[in-house]
Design a protein around this nucleic acid. Structure first.
Lengths: 365, 365
DNA sequence: CTGAAAGCGCTTACAG
DNA sequence: CTGAAAGCGCTTACAG
């Protein structure tokens, strides 16, 4: 029979102080030892049941399972982890100002995918915000200390100190992968990215082909790969032919991927080119802000101004009119990120993955 | 001098297989033992340095610190945790459909507060979504197993199975607190809530006092405390006097706290009462949806229809016109939640905390 | 101030 | 299929 197990005074708990002995004993958490005693087997057998029940007789297994239930046993995470060197926790590290996580539905789709995939490997996804050096150092420390099996980094900027920390941690065997193309120090980390430069060129070409002649871009921050590459794609859509055809481009850069910056940039574009007839915004959220300003300025979309976004987040579908955009295959990204992460956990150095974006043409262009 | 420490073949690592001996040794993570050897002290001394450096001579401390840096030592989380029974990880469990986390900026403010407070106690906040029984069971298991020091539950519905699980875990000493008033099984959990019933009554009174006579409510889901109590507050604002004054109320209930449901409910209200002159929405997000519908229906706010929200989230300030609303003191909530959580970790059963909401009057009413 | 030793609660060869 | 024993990497009295 089980000893105590948190429900009564435990004999081995220490000295009994005469009259004060009725003080409630601290609820001692049952251990594998209690289960063994309760089930009448050895601790080894309990452990085997805990780990899949191989090489255990059906009777023993049943007794152990029943004992666990009866004393409501839960295995100590740290003790298991100390042996197995696995924790079952994976962190999605969002290296972005806290408000942004909630404003941009982009990460949302990634989270859904990861939340679905990781449990199949007995892993749980934890989201954590790390937008300064202190918090980034803390989360990398937790990776190295074994609290986390791995880190999936997203929304990082080129100069984020976390890149260097992760590269160093990787040398020591840690598993860290990046969602997007890492800039700067992080280039050595496994990552999953998209051909956003190509998609941006095609999207811009699409605007030109529809007869637009004065085309602006609201580019993302220059210290993000999306900011740089989507701008590069936009630029590459213009050549001698388009110049000859009288096509002009206008560039503005948003400080971050917020609706607010979309508004600001759109106002700037309108000031610089009153007769603008098309805008490519480097994210749907930026496009949403731009749409607001166009509405208030009395410009019809797409009548007066064609508007395209990027990401194909829920915002693009909900906008009025719905936005032409480029779809980032977040579900595929999630699959590949998990694959790379597990490769890293097996000590492999996987190749980066590059995925295609799909053009989604809607009423806004 | 340090032995190997992951940079070369370790002598004690096992047999050497003749010609295959050049296979790169698996990068063995340095342990406290390596630090001790490298610093020329005992493991006890290293451990003392690790834990604050009390009772350690300055020279020994310096040697240890230097050795740690040199071999880039990181203490094993599981080994420490096995001894200290603390993990340093706290989970904010969002028991809500995944999309909602990102749509509603409400949790955002709570996250900011917690992210600021917990590190002061050497704890890190991890956000995890648990919207079904399986994932709720998993996260509670992680609490009981010691992976998590505590759980802060938010956005839970009355019938969420996690309530019963947490009550049981609490019996075994686990630390779990609830942001909001738990319904059903969860009533026995420590929690921090607000006087939203009072605030709703005052907000409704405010509409009546401004001369509004046909007043609708978009209530939240009936299986959330906010849904029930804000509706109760609304109802309590009507009595014989208001009836005598010709004031009529209309009730509609949203299925969830989304902008989409705000729109649907607003359309329903307009159908039932074309001459509605005021609406109280049980959250700013619901109000945002209602505002959209009113705009499209050509009703001026507040000219034709006064509109009030709840929460005082960023949405209320950004709306056009800015929304009258009730401010939930999320910063205070964060402080109290952390306080209750730590009380639970010390084995105390803290009393629930109830905070006041502040009425914020803006242009929409 | 310091080190040897026991112990935290598991897993995993090993021998039977 | 089962149990005794060693070990995972720390912390913490304990004795000096």
């Amino acid at each position: 029979v089980a000893r105590g197990c948190g429900t009564g005074p435990t004999l081995a708990a220490g000295p009994v102080w005469g009259r004060i002995s009725r003080v409630p004993s601290p609820p001692r958490t049952p251990t594998i030892r209690d289960v063994a005693t309760a089930a009448g087997v050895s601790r080894s057998t309990v452990s085997r049941v805990l780990n899949g029940g191989d090489r255990v007789s059906p009777e023993a297994a049943a007794a152990v399972t029943e004992a666990m239930r009866r004393i409501s046993y839960v295995a100590s995470h740290s003790a298991r982890s100390l042996n197995t060197r696995r924790s079952g926790a994976v962190a999605l590290v969002v290296a972005e100002r806290q408000e942004r996580l909630f404003e941009d539905p982009t990460s949302s789709v990634l989270v859904r995918g990861l939340n679905e995939l990781l449990p199949r490997h007995d892993q749980t996804l934890y989201i954590t915000l790390a937008d300064d050096e202190r918090s980034q150092r803390a989360v990398v420390e937790q990776l190295r200390s074994g609290l986390l099996d791995g880190i999936i980094l997203t929304a990082a900027h080129a100069d984020d100190p976390i890149f260097a920390m992760l590269v160093e941690a990787q040398l020591a065997g840690a598993a860290a992968v990046v969602a997007a193309l890492p800039l700067g120090a992080g280039r050595k980390l496994p990552h999953v990215t998209v051909r956003d430069q190509t998609a941006s060129r095609l999207l811009t070409r699409h605007l030109i082909d529809r007869g637009r002649r004065r085309i602006g871009i609201i580019a993302g921050p220059a210290d993000t790969s999306g900011g740089r590459r989507r701008l590069a794609g936009f630029r590459s859509a213009f050549d001698k032919r388009t110049t000859a055809a009288g096509v002009t481009s206008f560039v503005t850069v948003a400080k971050d991927y917020s609706a607010y910056e979309g508004e600001r940039a759109m106002r700037e574009l309108l000031t610089r080119a009153r007769d603008l007839d098309a805008v490519f915004a480097a994210s749907d959220l930026l496009a949403t802000g731009a749409l607001n300003v166009l509405d208030r300025a009395g410009r019809a979309v797409p009548g007066d101004v064609a508007l395209a976004g990027f990401d194909d987040s829920i915002l693009a579908r909900q906008a009025d009119p719905p936005l032409t955009t480029a779809r980032i295959p977040f579900d595929r990204m999630a699959v590949e990120l998990v694959r790379l992460l597990h490769a890293r956990m097996d000590g492999v150095h996987p190749e980066p993955v590059v995925l295609d974006c799909e053009l989604i043409l809607r009423a806004s262009t």
